[in-house]
Structures are given as structure tokens and as C-alpha cells.
Design a protein around this nucleic acid. Structure first.
Length: 316
DNA sequence: AAGACGAAAGTGGTTGA
DNA sequence: TCAACAACTTTCGTCTT
């Protein structure tokens, strides 16, 4: 068994958080009770194995293909070389009809892809997303178009949904809010299409982890590295106290950062943190109280605040 | 005046009959 | 398919600094 990574979600059977991703078998399973949580995991990673024992040139896949080009450089047309003279009249007309439809469908898909991939590039560069994410989003979008999932939805929202999905799969989640702002489409709409498309394409999503948001939020708030690692520390403890399950990961991340900043004398207002994280102050307050209660941080916080107070006085 | 706090009502999504 | 439900938001009044 090859354990490639561990996720912080929870086993529904025994509540253990010790889950294993077994990429070889495509399973997620619980370490303590052995329950298989997910056996239809799709491995989107690249395939580098040698299938030929001798190590000769037999590999899966050919030249690198890119999904950010609308036809991936591989166009297919129906029957340009068919021998028409040897067909009957019926076959011939059938052939023309098929070719016409194939042409229509493929040109429609291609036109759509051309537009959409332009949009995708624009949004992803606006959000400064890495090429690997863009590539994956393009792949997801391409599949969505081919399965006719875009029909009835706006192209923009599907693009945004694909990017949102790709970000999460790469453990650099963006909030729906950010996607909405970057793509200029409605937040709820993106959420809806995102759910629809992942369901239809059988892409399994685990809940995003609060920790994945910390570095980005911290730098947006210009908090130093120590505060950031303190926040991650808090997050880990909160997870052990079962404070994270069922709650929105961004809210938890925001509260952890807020507390960490207070403890390290780098106070940020709830509003500032809330804006960065895309949640409300109320949510931060709720999470923050839970964290204080469960981790017994009140006294430590008290001391930190007094220290900050003194420092402020000395400056005056 | 700004920030923090918390109550109350509203929203959209999930779940289970 | 519908209702119950939990999390989260919006809004607003009050308290603290």
C-alpha cells in the first residue's frame, strides 16, 4: 500500500480523523476502523509508470497534450477519405448527414471551447493561479462541454466552477467570493454549477482544510510567519477537539488567525480578518469563542493583551 | 467614533422520511 | 418531494475603549 497523503476529514463510522489516501487502489479509508470512505476516487495525477518491464519506449500516452488549446492539437474529422463511389445512394446520403452533424457538433464545441478557454485564462491570471491549476480547470471544462453540461448555464459560471474545483484539488482553495469577483458572475451560481459539474463528472471532493487558507489570509493581513504558524498550531488543536467538523473551513481559519494575531500582539480587527476570509464578523466571533473555550486560551490571551497594553503605553 | 458583542430573523443547502 | 435542521449571514441595538 502506498500512502500518499493524509486528509483531515472525519470517519463517519468511528469519528477518527486518521484517514488514509491510497492512490494505488483509489481508496480513502479509515485507519482505526478500516471503513472504506471512498472507492471511486479519480486519480488526476500524471502517469509516469513504465508498463514494459524491459523499460523500452512503451509508455501510456504520447506527446504532451494541453487542454488549454481548444483542440489539443488533435482534430478529428469524419470520413474525408471514404470511398464514395462504392456506396449506394442510401449509404451515401447517410454518410453526408452524419458528416454534417459531426461537423456541426464539433464546430459548436470548438467555438465554445475557444471562447471559454480565453475566459479561463483571463480569470486564472487575475487570480494569479499556477499553470497546473489552469490546465486542470481546462480539462474539467472540456469534459463538461463534451458531456453537454454547459447547456442552460452561463459559460462564465462553468469556467469559474472548473477553476474553483481545480484550486481545491490542488490544495490551494479560493473562496467562492474570490471566484465571483474575478469572473464577474454570481457567487451562488458558481456554487451551483460547481456542485452540478463535479457530481456529473464523478469528481469527488473532500472538504477543504482550514489550514490551506492560512498562508494566503495571513499574507493578505500582513501577519508575520510566527503568527501564521501559531494559527496553524491552533487549528491543529481545534481539530483534535472536534471543533472543525461541520463548520465552514474559512471561518475556522479566520478565527484561528484572529486569535493568533492577538496572542502575538499583531492585533487585527474582526472586520479586517472577516473581509480577507470572506466571512462575517459574527462567524469569526462564534468560532473564536469556541476556540477560546475549548483550548483554554483565555488566560493566555489576557496576558497577551496586557503586554500589548504596556507596550502601547511605553510608546506614548 | 470605532470596534466588539450578541440577539433575532432570514437564506440556501443538506438530509432523511 | 417536502419539512426539519445546522451553519452562516444580515441587521441592529448595546457596551467598551
Amino acid at each position: 500500500m502506498v500512502v500518499t497523503s493524509q486528509q483531515s476529514s472525519r470517519c463517519p463510522e468511528c469519528g477518527s480523523t486518521q484517514l488514509l489516501w491510497n492512490k494505488k487502489k483509489g481508496e480513502v479509508l479509515c485507519r482505526s476502523c478500516g471503513l472504506v470512505l471512498d472507492d471511486t476516487m479519480i486519480d488526476f495525477s500524471q502517469e509516469w509508470r513504465e508498463f514494459d518491464e524491459g523499460g523500452s519506449a512503451v509508455r501510456r500516452g504520447g506527446a504532451p497534450m494541453t487542454y488549454t488549446q481548444y483542440d489539443r492539437g488533435l482534430g478529428t474529422e469524419l470520413g474525408t477519405r471514404a470511398d464514395l463511389s462504392r456506396m449506394g445512394r442510401k449509404d451515401r446520403s447517410k454518410f453526408f448527414r452524419l458528416r454534417k452533424w459531426q461537423y456541426r457538433i464539433s464546430t459548436a464545441i470548438e467555438r465554445n471551447l475557444k471562447m471559454a478557454l480565453g475566459e479561463l485564462k483571463r480569470v486564472s491570471s487575475f487570480l494569479k493561479l499556477p499553470g497546473s491549476v489552469e490546465e486542470e480547470a481546462a480539462r474539467i471544462y472540456t469534459q463538461a462541454v463534451q458531456r453537454g453540461l454547459v447547456r442552460g448555464r452561463s459559460m462564465e459560471s462553468v469556467v469559474a466552477g472548473a477553476l474553483y474545483t481545480a484550486c481545491r484539488r490542488h490544495n490551494i482553495p479560493r473562496t467562492l467570493e474570490e471566484m465571483s469577483e474575478a469572473s464577474g458572475t454570481d457567487k451562488k451560481e458558481i456554487g451551483r454549477t460547481y456542485r452540478f459539474v463535479t457530481r456529473e463528472l464523478g469528481i469527488k471532493m473532500l472538504p477543504s482544510r482550514p489550514g490551506d487558507y492560512i498562508p494566503r489570509f495571513a499574507s493578505a493581513l500582513r501577519l508575520n510567519a510566527k503568527t501564521q504558524s501559531k494559527a496553524i498550531d491552533i487549528l491543529e488543536k481545534a481539530r483534535q477537539k472536534a471543533l472543525t467538523s461541520g463548520r465552514g473551513p474559512t471561518g475556522i481559519a479566520a478565527a484561528a488567525l484572529y486569535v493568533a494575531a492577538l496572542l502575538h500582539g499583531e492585533k487585527r480587527t474582526q472586520r479586517e480578518v472577516a473581509d480577507v476570509a470572506g466571512v462575517t464578523e459574527v462567524t469569526i466571533r462564534n468560532r473564536y469563542k469556541e476556540i477560546l473555550d475549548e483550548l483554554k486560551l483565555e488566560k493566555m490571551l489576557q496576558r497577551a493583551l496586557e503586554r500589548a497594553e504596556k507596550a502601547a503605553k511605553r510608546r506614548r
